[in-house]
Computed example of a mutant assay.
Amino acid sequence: MNTTFDTFRQQRLAEGFDEVLEREWAPLTVLDTHTHPFAANALVSRGEMWLTVGEHTRHLLAGDTFELDANVPHAERYGTEGAAYWVARRNA
């Protein structure tokens, strides 16, 4: 990964996101289908995860990105080492 959290944060705030934070997940965490009231733009910074939206599942590794619109049902599963990602949120 060629970026820092500070660079990620500054870029996302300039794009209109209003909150930027790092989320850490314990090994083998599973989050069943849920939604969030905010749009998200994220960069996996450590570990691996699987993100399922509808019938489509993506396997994400450090350096991969993902985006979700607000209120989109999705599920998350984290690998044996856990994971972390930086996420910018655009609250409604």
Rank of each mutant, 00 (worst) to 15 (best):
N71F: 11
A84G: 10
F38H: 14
M49R: 04
N41C: 13
N91C: 07
R58E: 14
F38V: 08
E22H: 03
M49L: 15
T3S: 13
A83S: 10
L31P: 02
N91L: 11
T4C: 11
R46Y: 09
T65N: 07
E76K: 05
A42E: 05
Q10K: 10
L13C: 04
F38L: 11
V53W: 01
Y78M: 07
M49E: 07
A14S: 09
T33P: 01
F17S: 02
R58C: 11
G82R: 00
T80K: 13
R23M: 14
T80N: 12
A92P: 15
L31Q: 10
A84P: 04
A14G: 06
D18S: 06
Q10D: 14
M49C: 12
E81A: 15
R89C: 11
N71P: 09
H56A: 04
Q10Y: 03
V87M: 05
D6T: 12
E48T: 03
A83R: 00
L31I: 11
H59V: 00
V53A: 00
G16C: 08
F66L: 05
S45H: 03
G79S: 12
T29L: 13
T57A: 09
L31D: 01
G82T: 08
A83K: 00
L28V: 02
E76C: 02
D64E: 08
T35S: 09
H34F: 08
G54K: 00
E24I: 09
G54W: 00
D69G: 12
L21F: 13
Q11E: 14
N2W: 00
H36Q: 10
E81W: 12
W25H: 14
L13M: 10
G63D: 10
G54F: 04
T35G: 01
F5R: 05
E67D: 13
L51F: 04
A62T: 07
F66A: 04
T4P: 03
N2Q: 08
A75Y: 01
R89Q: 14
N91T: 14
S45M: 02
F38Q: 06
R9E: 13
L60R: 01
A26G: 06
L60A: 05
G79P: 01
G54T: 01
T33L: 05
Y85T: 06
V72Q: 10
R23E: 15
A26T: 10
W50P: 03
H56G: 04
G79K: 12
G47D: 06
T29Q: 09
T4G: 13
R9H: 12
W25G: 04
E22K: 07
D6H: 13
D64F: 09
L28P: 05
E19P: 05
E15D: 14
G16E: 10
V20F: 05
A62S: 13
A92V: 06
P27M: 07
E19D: 15
R90T: 04
R89V: 10
D69L: 14
A70Q: 07
W50V: 00
F8K: 04
V72M: 10
R58K: 08
L68C: 00
G16M: 08
R46F: 13
